[in-house]
Amino acid sequence: MSAFVRRSKALLAGLALVLGLSAPAGAEPPRRVVSINLCTDQLALLIAAPGQLVSVSNLGQDAMLSAMADRAAAFPANRGQAEEVFLMRPDLVLAGTFTTQATVDLLQRLGVPVAQFPPVSSLDDLRDGIVRMGAALGREAVADEIVARFDADLAALSATAPVGTARPRAALYYPNGYSLGDRTLAGQVLAAAGLANVAAEAGLHHGGHLALEQLVLADPDLILTGRRYPTPARAQDVLDHPALTAGSGAARRGNIDDRDLICGTPQVLKALADLVARRQALAAPAPAPEVEAGG
């Protein structure tokens, strides 16, 4: 009986979280939180109280994807399977809304409260996500503090490098010719850094395939690629295509740490600072043209 009541209460609390409501005042914060999503991993690592988070996803520990992989390494990893998550006896599971719906449904049927966080596609979403995570974990004060610090850092960065009228044109280019348009988190950070987005010019507003020849014809000032896996894959070949390196192409290539742009955490400021520096370098008066050997 009491177990049933506790479970129902937990279910209701979970439902409230899903609906974006904060837990009712006085409700106990969850004590065993399991995160099964790369981005909730990172938010929980930032916000959770010591001992509150008991497991993160294996992606959260992957140094290729996670900006907080080293901190995540201290936790037991899960692979986001309902069975293993259930056996960890969580009183709250943190999940994304995008890909794990079957797992989430199953966990909820088993009576485990699940808080789902949608993908972040703007800086406002980012603030919302932090606040919601604070509410879900009963750590509102910490979350507010993080948002305040984020806003202060963002304002400081914008003040030191005001966006001028010259907006160099950049493209984010990933394996398989994937690019990100203006209505994505990375696109918003690009815009905040004072860079125009070539993918958006080509009509790509979300994420999608930008054909190599469209990219070449758009003639961007900057082609930004992310981290690469050291082992070969045909998907990565396009990043080394001669059409991108021919002539003056090599000079406008840049590598960014795209881990900072995947999730809505204050880590995006690191990427923003990097992009601002690149924009300033492009906007600076060009040095005297080099004389090419054998010109």
Partner: peptide, 25 residues
Amino acid sequence: LSPNPYAAAEIVFWMMGSLADRSMT
């Protein structure tokens, strides 16, 4: 088995073939 997650998606290419984004190389 490749540690690169993109490699697994390549199975389709090797089984069905494509000429997308090939170069003079």
